[in-house]
Amino acid sequence: MTQDRIIYGIFFLVITAIGFAVENHYYLQLLTIIGINTLLALGLNMLMGYAGQISLGHAAFYGIGAYTTAILTVHYNINPWMSLPCALFLAVLVAVIVGLPTLKLTGYYLGMGTLGFGMIVHILFREWSSLTGGASGFVGIPPLEIGPISFFPARNYFYLVWFTVLISFVFCKRLIKSRMGRALRAIHDSENAAKAVGINTRNMKLEIFVFSAALSALSGFFYAHMVSFISPESFSFLVSVKIVTMVVIGGMASIWGSLLGASLLTMLPEWLHSFSDFEMVVYGLILMLVMIITPQGLTRGILDIYERSRTTKNKP
């Protein structure tokens, strides 16, 4: 409990310090994207890492968040802070409708079900041109502001996103350490035994699916208002896979793993520019290596190395 507080305190200071120190707008924006991706990975990690339910369609919720706020603010002139609850509500509604039938599935079948859902939503974004701007995308999404404070400058947006990440971390950690968190992990370990101790597994899975969808939509909201231009390709199947990869690389069932995974997968393409044509090859190789060396994800891997070095040091 107090240990958690210290960690959040440090996290807070780090965010503040980075916000102060980094002057370059490009880097600030890159860091903000990492924050947005961290929210995405965190949302999926709650579902996948803790409850053990895979989703290969999470980019759909990300997109629902982005397109809802884009459409409401541009076509209907609604204040972005009013469109946020609408975006969250729509994502929750869709998650309930999609989750009720698909969460009955397990394993590969659940993967296929969510994959299909993600593809349908992607096609909707692309083909429903009158509303979404179609394949060419949606332009002119307004920046965020609260009264006199504009979040248009990169630094303000950085703070907005990263303090949201901090709050989300606190919430998720609380959730995990609660009755509900234990029930989710129980479902992950053995659904039969979870039922036998009286957990309504269907409702529990649906609840975490909905929460996970809401976090993704929040992330999409931030993305849309940051870049002001969105297109269907930002919410395609490949993006769903990327979110899954962030969770797996960073570490399943680890909140900080989401941060690590999101950072790595956002930064890697930037670093790999110098490889130009071979970028994707090197990218793939790095991911493969990480999975081979630390199959539990980077967070677990680093902790293991740390613990091993400590035990060897303690030996006479």
């Binding site: 609660s178 009755r179 509900m180 234990r182 029930a183 992990r185 129980a186 992950h188 370990d189 053995s190 039969n192 035994a193 979870a194 036998a196 101790v197 009286g198 957990i199 609840e207 069932a253």
Partner: peptide, 23 residues
């Protein structure tokens, strides 16, 4: 069929699920 990823006390706390209600 125990919950293998949890420690012993957490297993028993899960058993308390129906007698608690925090959501």
């Amino acid at each position: 069929e125990i919950f293998g990823s949890m420690n012993v006390i957490e297993n028993v706390m899960v058993g308390r699920h129906v007698r608690s209600k925090c959501g």
